[in-house]
Design a protein around this nucleic acid. Structure first.
Length: 873
RNA sequence: GGGCGCGUAGCUCAGCGGUAGAGCGCUGCCCUUACAAGGCAGAUGUCGGCGGUUCGAAACCGUCCGCGCCCACCA
């Protein structure tokens, strides 16, 4: 025990009166890392606890959203580590295909170059170079935040190991015929020059213009409407509903397509809504997904009229115009021919945009690789349906099911250079060979590898097990798969979570990648507005961490973390958390200055005062509460419970009451030192997962322990004392009541007032010294004149306020209180007089009302007595 | 068009069947020897509107109004 004391890293006098986070946080973090606290041992006998980081894009730096997410994950893993789990928080980053390629291309642009100037190899090399610079920035920010990740296991989606995992997965899916190549209409971004998947398209209502065109002539004509007139060059049919009598005579015939030399058939297709517009639809199979399907059903040719830049390729007057130029040019030309039957009219409709660059998507017929999601999505849905994976909050399950149950095949090829290249080789005679890891690609004349890369989310989908060494059967994989929980934003439920579910279940023989999915919301500003650079309300988390400390930022974020709900944050709130950290700091300082200790066992209950028993009881209740909230991912409630317990109960009451005890000395003081030590020790440990830095300094100073990071998580001893709790509640009531009186009377807080206390026979008798101290009451002295008497809870506090007291003010106050008490009595009486209530309400509720009535009656009597004793003015 | 969610104190949000809560902000007094990044005391709400269920509704049901989000092949 004595040598432990010598390890104290700080003596009370060394602690300054204010906590200065910036000076210590960095040092503490590096010490934790050096000591290997965050490393995870696959050979450990401890129960594993695994969380993977949602890998940040190498393109950027961390924003508040990351800080938020990391706070939650760090809190979870720190607690589990303290609970004795072999804990792995897996760090790493995502290569973020399109995003990264765009960033580097933009950089090249500034140098007046394009990626084609460097060539594929040179460009990829350049991206790697860029990644090496940017990636360090992110890890620096994570250290600053205090993320307890296993740095020795850091992974990157383009690592050799993870690339091997990607290749293995591709081949496995290919051989199971769950990957195939097909020509379909895809979402094409004419700026990124690549296909993107359905969920990478963001729809928004755009203003468009609907124009009605007449195809054919005379009786053999039909009017169609379009917002994309330029596509008419590629029309290969007009479709009408099979039952539509208006057009029955035209079905099977042809109409002349204006501006072209072609005539196109009129086909009947049930897809057409006869109620909509004219009931006739132009069909452009090469540039519209619906039209493509109609085309398939009727054997229509798909005639592409635009290139990858969305520029018209059809020879003639429109060739070389981009889609928008072509649109107006074609409308003008049609008007000249008298083909416009209804002028353009404004039309708001939903238009798809590239989620990366916001360019309007151009549906385009193209040969791409696809994942056949049917069986994968089924398994992913079932795993949640049958309870093997739980989604928090549960309301999100519905969104998840809607998506996995209605999923279209996933387009996974991208016409980019940065990413995992598709491991397929094409032979001179049309052979197709999928090459697995370690296999030699076919050699010889005419063999070439597919030039496309895979969707970024293909590799992210493998993250929960690729980071653990899959496809090798590693010890880490055996130990840490499946992950315990996935913590991520609801915004990537489809992008990432669902894909991990599909891939995890498939690659890991039906074992889902995690037991629980805990979805958090998005960080917003203090008015609930979305944070964005353009709106000017985006905040760099580093700024706030520098100003207020990482703990303050973390605590604020955790405190706003209601499950699945967006979390607003404002600078004043971070300040408030900084104040809390400082409060903990000073409370611990006080404790150390007064000899608080954690040495030796807790005193037996017989030696404890009611105050001690009360705070220990509350301490244990808090432990139980915090555990329950953590297990339910209720971070806001964890933080709130700790905030209020620490500040309102420990600091404002227990510490204040202990001052009298310490002053008096004796056994009670010795006991209080140990109890205060215990309460702070446990409270600091409870707080550590959320505010790791300040708790580390204080806990080591208080206990002499090596580090709170590896301390035991507090356990509820089961100790409860409701009698003591009631006693302290009464004490608080008396003190508050008299303070209120003092304040109403305009007495200075420090002014000493002679007082006589009559506490005999009340539970407050042992607290006389504390009451006198907290209320600044001095002994009554010889010439004591009781001018104000406050009866509270059976006790009586008589104050000598000769010459000072303002009886009128007090009378008003008392009358107001009387009114409130009478109202309370009336309400309670009415309830208790209601037979239906008595018959139907549960016993405890009725008891409660009876209690209220009794209290109201007692209050009325008391207040009336007080008023009666006031001298009349 | 379908689905989900939200309207509670000035602001941001908890509460989701038994006397309206928190943080910040606000008012007054105070540098009381841990802390002014603090202490003490205090004010503030017909819980979006209207109906209904219930002994009892902020909470449950219906409806209306106002927001937000997700999904969808709206020519």
């Amino acid at each position: 025990m004595t040598d432990k004391t010598q390890q104290h890293s700080a003596t009370p006098t060394e602690l300054p009166t204010q906590y200065a986070p910036a000076e210590v946080e960095g040092k503490l973090y590096e010490r934790w890392v050096e000591r290997g606290y965050f490393e995870a041992d696959e050979n450990s006998a401890k129960e594993p606890y695994t969380v993977v980081i949602p890998p940040p894009n190498v393109t950027g730096s961390l924003h508040l959203g990351h800080a938020f997410e990391h706070t939650l994950i760090d809190a979870l893993t720190r607690r589990k580590r303290m609970q004795g789990h072999e804990t792995l928080w897996q760090p790493g980053m995502d290569h973020a295909g399109i995003a990264t390629q765009n960033v580097v291309e933009r950089e090249l642009g500034k140098e007046g170059k394009s990626r084609h100037d460097l060539g594929r190899e040179g460009f990829v090399e350049r991206v790697w170079q860029w990644k090496n610079e940017s990636g360090g920035q992110i890890s620096g920010q994570m250290r600053r935040l205090g993320d307890g990740v296993a740095w020795n296991r850091e992974r990157f989606t383009m690592d050799e190991g993870l690339s091997k995992a990607v290749q293995t997965m591709f081949k496995k899916l290919y051989e199971d015929e769950l990957i195939y190549r097909a020509e379909r209409i895809i979402n094409w971004c004419p700026r990124c020059l690549t296909a993107i998947s359905d969920i990478e398209v963001e729809y928004q209502d755009d203003d468009g213009e609907l124009v009605s065109l007449r195809y054919g002539d005379g009786d053999e004509s039909v009017v169609v409407a379009t917002t994309r007139a330029e596509t008419m060059l590629g029309d290969t049919a007009v479709a009408v509903h099979p039952d539509d009598e208006r057009y029955a005579h035209l079905v099977g015939r042809t109409v002349r397509l204006p501006l072209t030399e072609r005539s196109i058939p009129v086909v009947a297709d049930a897809h057409v809504d006869p109620e909509f517009g004219t009931g006739a639809v132009k069909v452009t199979p090469a540039h519209d997904p619906n039209d493509f399907e109609i085309g398939q059903r009727h054997g229509l040719p798909a005639l592409a009229v635009m290139d990858e830049h969305a520029v018209i390729t059809v020879p003639g007057p429109f060739q070389g115009l981009d889609r928008l130029e072509a649109r107006s040019a074609i409308v003008a030309a049609l008007r000249a021919e008298g083909r416009i039957v209804a002028e353009k009219r404004p039309y708001v409709h939903s238009v798809g945009h590239c989620s990366r660059c916001k360019t309007t998507i151009e549906p385009r017929l193209s040969m791409q690789w696809w994942v056949k999601v049917g069986p994968l999505a089924k398994a992913a849905g079932d795993a949640v349906r049958d309870g093997r994976v739980a989604i928090h909050p549960q309301e999100m399950e519905k969104r998840y099911f809607d998506w996995v149950d209605n999923l279209h095949d996933w387009c996974i090829s991208r016409q980019l250079w940065w990413g995992h290249r598709i491991p397929v080789w094409y032979g001179p005679d049309g052979e197709v060979v999928c090459v697995g890891p370690g296999e030699e690609p076919p050699s010889g004349a005419g063999w070439t590898q597919d030039t496309d890369v895979l969707d970024t989310w293909f590799s992210s989908g493998l993250w929960p097990f690729s980071t653990l060494g899959w496809p090798e059967r590693t010890g880490s994989l055996a130990k840490f798969y499946p992950n315990s929980v996935l913590v991520t934003g609801y915004d990537i439920l489809f992008f990432w979570v669902a894909r991990m579910m599909m891939f995890g279940l498939y690659a890991m023989d039906g074992t889902p990648p995690f037991h629980t999915i805990a979805l958090h919301g998005m960080v917003r500003d203090q008015f609930g507005k979305k944070m964005s650079k353009s709106f000017g309300n985006a905040v760099n988390p580093l700024d706030w961490m520098d100003k207020y400390g990482s703990d303050a930022l973390r605590f604020t974020l955790a405190r706003g973390a209601n499950p699945g709900v967006d979390v607003p944050i404002g600078e004043e709130w971070v300040q408030g958390s900084r104040n809390f950290a400082n409060k903990i700091w000073n409370a611990t300082r006080f404790a150390l200055m007064n000899g608080a200790t954690v040495e030796g066992p807790l005193p037996v209950p017989e030696r404890l005062s009611a105050t001690d028993r009360w705070i220990l009881s509350r301490l244990n209740e808090t432990v139980a509460e915090v555990d329950a909230f953590y297990d339910d991912y209720q971070f806001a409630k964890v933080s709130d419970a700790l905030f209020h317990f620490a500040w309102d109960e420990v600091f404002d009451w227990y510490v204040e009451l202990s001052k009298t005890t310490f002053q008096a000395g004796g056994d009670a003081a010795e006991v209080a030192k140990r109890v205060l030590g215990e309460v702070l020790d446990v409270t600091l440990r409870l707080l550590h997962p959320i505010v790791p830095f300040v708790t580390e300094i204080l806990w080591t100073a208080l206990t002499g322990g090596e580090s709170v990071v590896i301390a035991d998580w507090p356990a509820d001893s089961g100790f409860r004392d409701t009698a003591a709790a009631g006693e302290i509640a009464t004490l608080q009531q008396v003190i508050t009541e008299v303070r209120r009186f003092r304040a109403d009377q305009g007495l200075q807080p420090g002014q000493r007032v002679p007082a006589r206390l009559r506490l005999d026979g009340t539970p407050l008798a042992p607290h006389e010294a504390a009451i006198r101290q907290l209320l600044r009451l001095q002994p009554e002295g010889e010439a004591f004149t009781s001018t104000a008497t406050l009866p509270v809870a059976g006790a009586e506090v008589a104050l000598d306020l000769s010459g000072v007291i303002d009886f009128e003010a007090e009378r008003k106050r008392l009358e107001k209180d009387l009114g409130a008490a009478e109202k309370e009595r009336t309400q309670a009486e009415r309830k208790l007089g209601n037979e239906a209530f008595l018959a139907k309400a549960p016993e405890d509720v009725v008891d409660k009302i009876r209690g209220r009535l009794a209290k109201a009656v007692a209050d009325i009597e008391r207040i009336q007595g007080q008023i009666g004793r006031l001298p009349s003015a």
